[in-house]
């Protein structure tokens, strides 16, 4: 018998995920998990044909490393520049300032809080985000979709996982190598397929959604999530 039967991943950091009740739960994560997720997100970014040197605004929170770092690193891998702001109402001024100063090709992680903050300052999202790809969190997605001139896609945290929508806008892709994704009674249930710092077996995420398997028109076979 081999002496090494199982290896344990060492965390590089501890982030957090929102449990089924929406409460923050700490989530140790490793560099391998970040890098695997980065590769999955690259499969999505590839469908937009961005150019090296483009600028992407990323709005996030400091404790979202396990979820957003792979996106940020994918942007960098693509040779694009990540400009950062908090996804809070009170950092909306920075969001506006970045949009004004930089020629942005995209904006990711836009939340309802960001939209509220912009509205309080008198800025209109349909003007600010015009001409770029916008990945919106669930609480901002429908609000932005209401503006026909905007090009809006989904960015979703699903428990410990992340899902990002491709250029076809037909559901947010989730990494098929990392997660076994099931739809049980209309709820997304996750099981990790590879070693992680924290195991998730038949994890009921609380997200009511349709899971679409099979190929997407973008060419990426990763399953797609469409919230109910």
């Amino acid at each position: 018998m081999s002496q090494i039967t199982q290896t344990t991943l060492s965390p590089i950091a501890v982030g957090r995920y929102l449990n089924v009740d929406g409460e923050k739960t700490s989530l140790p994560y490793s560099l391998m998990e970040v890098d695997r997720s980065r590769r999955a997100i690259l499969r999505v970014l590839n469908t937009f044909h961005f150019r090296t040197g483009a600028n992407i605004l990323i709005t996030s929170l400091f404790d979202e490393g396990a979820h957003m770092m792979p996106f940020e690193r994918a942007v960098m891998t693509y040779g694009m520049v990540a400009a950062s702001a908090d996804s809070t109402p009170w950092d909306a001024k920075r969001v506006e300032s970045i949009v004004r100063m930089f020629a942005l090709s995209g904006a990711a992680g836009i939340s309802g809080d960001v939209l509220d903050g912009l509205a309080q300052l008198g800025f209109k999202p349909e003007e600010l985000f015009d001409g770029m790809k916008v990945w919106a969190r669930p609480d901002a997605y429908e609000r932005l979709k209401a503006f026909p001139n905007l090009d809006v896609y989904r960015w979703m945290e699903i428990g410990p996982a992340v899902a990002v929508e491709c250029s076809q806008g037909a559901g947010a892709h989730i990494d098929r190598f990392e997660w076994n994704v099931e739809e049980i009674d209309g709820e997304v249930v996750l099981t990790n397929r590879l070693n992680r710092c924290v195991e998730f077996k038949n994890y009921h995420t609380g997200l009511k959604a349709k899971v679409h398997n099979g190929g997407c028109d973008c060419g990426n076979p990763d399953p797609r999530i469409i919230p109910a």
Binding site: A13, L31, I58, M69, D86, S87
Partner: peptide
């Protein structure tokens, strides 16, 4: 988060 993510 304005300096980006640097946990790694």
């Amino acid at each position: 988060f304005r300096d980006g993510l640097n946990a790694d």
